[in-house]
Design a protein around this nucleic acid. Structure first.
Length: 260
DNA sequence: ATGCCCGAGAACCTCGGA
């Protein structure tokens, strides 16, 4: 089975890219971030025609997350537990595996944070700590758990095109990496890094300048597997194909594959 | 230089993104 995370930076603009990618790749679960649309505009019919169910929580202009799935999700939750927040950044549900077990899939759009000395960074830290506590509970109740999303944190310098340029900056600071490590120490593993040890592999490239052509990117879109799911993982990759299209998202799909 | 590009909303500029 294939689980994918993709920040589409406006689903309205990218719906054709997403549809084409679904047709070609047939993931079991496609987790989207930055829908940038209210629920009333979510294009469910488009995905229904392709054989996918949709669970989503959106808002005008900003944020918004969705999970497209071959089988319907159950017990869907659209609020980060114990955190009052109008920003739509969290969605989770149960997915039935072919082996009869259940997987808890969690899809997040972690706050950007803007700069370490900004109010937005205080919000990022608070949000992320609540995510850690929520994942502790999720992991205790579901041995099969996968947490995916746009984390807006690079796990290490191996995930940064120019570590010296980004040193200490937002997405690459020690404090954010410690936050991520603390979350992962609850029992989550970077599936991509488990299978790929080399650097210069990114999931986001700046629109500005020749960002993509020069491979000036960051790996901030992650698929984190629980121990039981890592045991089932067979591969993990990043598909740069959509980033080469006309009018692309600045992010591209991060993929993990499992044998269940 | 906190810019270069992009999307959304309201409006031909500002905000947010990363």
């Amino acid at each position: 089975m294939k689980i994918v995370s993709w920040n589409v930076n406006s689903l309205r603009v990218r719906v054709e890219h997403v549809s084409d990618w679904l047709k070609t790749n047939q993931p079991d679960l496609l987790c989207l971030q930055e829908l940038k649309m209210p629920d009333s505009e979510f294009p469910s019919e488009v995905f229904t025609e392709l054989g996918y169910h949709s669970a989503f929580t959106g808002q005008k202009t900003y944020n918004g997350v969705a999970i497209l799935s071959k089988q319907p999700l159950e017990n869907v939750v659209t609020d980060l537990p114990d955190f009052e927040d109008p920003m739509r950044r969290y969605i989770a549900g149960d997915y039935s595996l072919e082996n009869g077990e259940t997987l808890r899939i969690v899809n997040v759009y972690v706050p950007n944070g803007q700069a370490l000395d900004s109010d937005k960074f205080i919000y990022k830290r608070a949000w992320f700590e609540k995510l850690r506590l929520a994942m502790r509970a999720t992991l205790s109740e579901n041995k099969n758990t996968v947490l995916v999303g746009d984390f807006n944190i690079t796990p290490s310098d191996l995930d940064v095109h120019a570590p010296e340029k980004w040193a200490g900056k937002i997405h690459c600071s020690d404090i954010e990496r410690l936050m991520l490590q603390k979350l992962m120490s609850e029992g989550l593993y970077d599936t991509y890094r488990h299978f790929n040890k080399e650097g210069d592999q990114f999931s986001w490239w700046d629109y500005r300048g020749a960002g993509y052509r020069a491979n000036e990117g960051l790996r901030i879109d992650l698929v984190l597997s629980s121990s039981a799911m890592l045991d089932k993982a067979t591969d993990s990759s990043i598909d740069e194909t959509p980033r080469k299209l006309e009018r692309p998202s600045d992010h591209t799909p991060a993929i993990a594959e499992y044998l269940v």
